[in-house]
Amino acid sequence: MEHRWGMAIDLDRCTGCEACVAACHAENNLPLSDPAEAEKGRAFHWIRVDRYYEGEFPDIRMKYMPVLCQQCEDAPCEPVCPTYATYHNAEGLNVQVYNRCVGTRYCGNNCPYSVRFFNWFEPEWPEPLELQHNPDVSIRPGGVMEKCTFCIQRIQRAKRDAKAEDRAITDGEVQPACVQSCPAEAMTFGDLDDPESKVSRLAASGRATRLLEDLGTKPKVFYLQRAK
């Protein structure tokens, strides 16, 4: 509709510091996992930093790739949900409605990026961390799927602010927690429908690729890197 949110991540700038991961945890009330659970693959990281190695050991070059929900236009997770818990909203966001989810986890299996996280138990926070929850983000019950929302609460706030002041949202006004906290300024967020926005220009630049593009999922996260 009026917006089509997208993100560009400059892999040449990313240092792999994981500030985005920490910021996301704090912003989105992600449940904490103890080491045993984390070892079982049950830790929650709506954004994670994948590591790739180039060259032969010891002569290697490390490359980092932050992977979050790609907010696909044709998302494989959507049609398989029996209860419409995951669906596409008018702004092209791939949203998850926790209350509708019955926990079949089909969407999780059908996500080629493995960015969907399941609440295996009721979430718990060690004291006093339950006091620092973000009031704008709901706490998910046990047994439902969750994933990156592009910080939809920040998008909503920006829209409300703009409406109250009777103006359009300016480019760069909405910043998800990961974008805001990136010290290398590798991440850019904005409206892909606005050809003048920074993210549109980056997406149109020759450096942009998309992850597993050949699957036809049409992700809205663009990775920028030097053309080889």
Partner: peptide
Amino acid sequence: HLGRPLVFFWLIPYPNSRLLWPNFRSPL
């Protein structure tokens, strides 16, 4: 196998307070 087995009947199409029908395109 469900994460919330007690609400498995949400897959059954019936008029409900959530104003929702199930997704008939899901293989489930």
